[in-house]
Computed example of a mutant assay.
Amino acid sequence: MPRTAKVATEAVILDVGHGNCAVLRDGSKCVIVDAKSDKLLYQELMASGVRRIEHLVLSHADSDHIAGALRLLPNEDFEVGTVWVNSDSQKDSQQWHELLTLLTALHQAGRLKARLAICDLDGWDLSLENVSIDVIHPTFTDIGHGTGKRGRVRPEITTNGMSVVLRVLLEGLPALLLPGDLDSNGLDQILSRDKEVSAHVLVYPHHGGHSGGPEESFAKILCDAVSPDVVLFSMGRGVFRNPLPEVVEEITRSFPDARVACTQLSENCHAGTVPEGERGYLLNRPAAGNKGNRSCAGTVRVAVADNQLVVEPASLDHKRWIRQHVSAAMCESGGNLPVPRPRNP
């Protein structure tokens, strides 16, 4: 009999196309990490009965992580507690400027609190009763220095290297690592601090795109540190042709027992017309890939059942569809269906 996961505590990685958005839910309370699409996020929150957003964490200033916040935050259907952002002197986009202006106005109106700094000292403030959040990166020192080139006492910190990296535990189980667009410089800094980053599911940084260093080396070092059972690429079909083949090849070669999945069907796996085969395994949750039949794993849910972490959609049904309909799936490695090992506290 299939396990029945608890409804009250879950993490939902929304398929928003090329972008990121995770909803960490503890009963009627939630923390949102990044907001690419206000429409899909609105649908998810309304369907799950969430009207109170305790925290919205925006990992960095790129459009595919903040665009949805511009329209979601003024929406009076939701009450928002605190929005967390980090300053970025290198990001000079109109959208980023508009978001900072909006946060100022909403803070002054008493609609929410706006925090212009999030670092490794803030995990306790972000956590809910059954959802623990550890801020892995950046540190207080990183925030103090800000982005910029290497100086006398500080390393180079790029916009992506300053991405907020969160480790999420559901009911004490290490469920997720959410690294935003973390690059090789940022990863080097994290590893030098000997922080605990292991997690059942790794949402791969930068949608499987370029990391600023040798891609195979970055993938192996990151996965060695995280030891994930599932590696998920949040990406949009037809955008930048992510994930990079060399990234997926390294993961499937070095970590053959890990499940590798993409929210949407990569053109590197299946070029041309998308297959029309029935995707009965997909969750009944909002997903950008529902339009145009572009889904692969679609929106993904992580929850707890029998003191173990469960990932939906199930690997077996998803892989069966891939083998029937996808011409050159990068995630296949030797034809074996990986069985996730139990992840204990």
Rank of each mutant, 00 (worst) to 15 (best):
D183W: 03
Y204P: 15
K220Y: 05
P228W: 11
H200W: 02
A225P: 14
S184V: 09
S192G: 12
L176V: 03
D183H: 02
A199M: 04
L177H: 09
E196H: 14
V230D: 10
P174A: 07
M235F: 06
L182Q: 09
V230Q: 00
D181K: 05
H207C: 10
N185P: 00
L182M: 12
L176K: 06
S234M: 00
V226T: 09
V201S: 07
L182G: 13
S234K: 00
A225M: 10
C223R: 13
R193N: 13
L222R: 11
S217Q: 14
L176E: 12
E196N: 15
E215S: 14
L182S: 04
K195T: 10
N185E: 01
L177K: 06
A219N: 07
V197W: 06
D229H: 11
L222W: 11
V201K: 11
I190F: 12
C223L: 04
A175K: 11
G213E: 11
C223M: 12
F218D: 10
N185R: 13
K195G: 01
M235K: 10
D183G: 01
V203M: 02
R193F: 05
G209Q: 02
F233S: 02
V197N: 10
D194P: 01
P214S: 01
D194H: 15
L222H: 10
P228E: 03
G212R: 08
E216G: 08
V230I: 13
H210S: 05
P205Q: 04
Y204S: 09
S217D: 15
D183V: 02
H206I: 00
F218I: 05
E196C: 06
V226Q: 12
E215Y: 00
L191T: 11
L222V: 02
K195V: 14
V201N: 09
G208Y: 08
A225W: 14
L232D: 02
S227K: 15
P174V: 06
G180I: 07
L202A: 01
P214G: 03
D224V: 00
P205V: 05
